[in-house]
């Protein structure tokens, strides 16, 4: 069974994004970039499927700038077998990413696509669902457990109010939530090995997919800031302030 894992290079989750003064976007110059944390979870899950003997090949793919090769090397160091970069300097919208991924699925014919539920830059939470729709494959999003047996996958999903379990026929798209697993750190020997693994680079244009943006960013602004309030000395103090000053009790 072949597993395809789309991974995105994004601002590191520890870094607080800053809005550019000209309101055209967020300042990413000299900012630490990493693999989207949900994509790390997806890679980990795919690698575990391989270690269990369920998957035979794990292919990591990214759509992004040349630097996304680093992100793909991380995936390779975690245990993916090979990688594909679809190179573009544009930041594609989820619909466009889904269309590119569909084209790659057409070439690679995976049995399963495991991806993140959300990229922490755009916070869209849309690409996996769109890909499943375009492929007419079943989807199981926000997964906290995944079990593949034969031509089916059983997926436990984090939903409002608790957990839901679905069974989907393969091929299918699964998106990872936080509790699916804890991604490993790539060891130094594996980082070295990853340098020798195949990483193919394709130009976005060569795929012939329409990736024109549908949304125009008018401006990007800073949200109103909260300021620190006061420190109270005791719990009794707190209750009296909440009652009389804040009026919320």
């Amino acid at each position: 069974m072949k597993v395809l894992v789309p991974v995105k290079r994004v601002i590191d989750y520890n870094v607080k994004a800053r809005v550019k003064p000209d309101q055209t976007g967020v300042d990413l110059a000299n900012v630490k970039m990493s693999m989207n944390p949900f994509c790390e979870i997806a890679v980990e899950e795919a690698v575990r499927l391989k270690e269990k003997g369920v998957a035979t090949e794990v292919v990591a793919v990214s759509i992004g700038p040349a630097q996304a090769q680093e992100t793909l090397r991380t995936a390779l160091a975690m245990g993916a077998d090979r990688a594909i970069l679809v190179q573009t300097s544009d930041d594609l919208e989820p619909l466009a990413v889904a269309k590119v991924l569909k084209a790659l699925v057409g070439k690679e014919s995976p049995d399963l696509v495991v991806m993140g539920k959300q990229a922490i830059d755009g916070d869209n939470n849309a690409t996996g669902q769109m890909l499943a729709t375009l492929l007419d494959w079943p989807q199981a999003t926000f997964a906290s457990a995944l079990e593949v047996s034969g031509s089916k996958a059983k997926v436990t999903r984090e939903v409002d109010g608790g957990l839901q379990t679905l069974e989907v026929d393969l091929p299918a798209v699964v998106t990872a939530d936080l509790r699916l697993n804890e991604p490993r750190y790539a060891s130094l020997p594996n980082i070295m090995k990853a340098k020798k693994k195949e990483l193919a680079v394709e130009e976005l244009a060569s795929l012939g997919v329409d990736t024109a943006p549908r949304l125009k960013v008018v401006k990007v602004t800073e949200p109103s800031k909260r300021t620190a309030g006061v420190k109270v000395e005791t719990a009794a103090d707190l209750v009296s302030k909440l009652k009389t000053e804040a009026g919320v009790l």
Binding site: P94, G122, A132, T133, E158, V159, D160
Partner: peptide, 22 residues
């Protein structure tokens, strides 16, 4: 909601339009 986030992008993809999230 988690339910809305689950199905709404499918509607967008089927209509071939962007989803404007949250």
């Amino acid at each position: 909601t988690s339910q809305g986030k689950n199905f709404s992008p499918r509607i967008a993809a089927k209509l071939d339009v962007a989803q404007i999230s949250e």
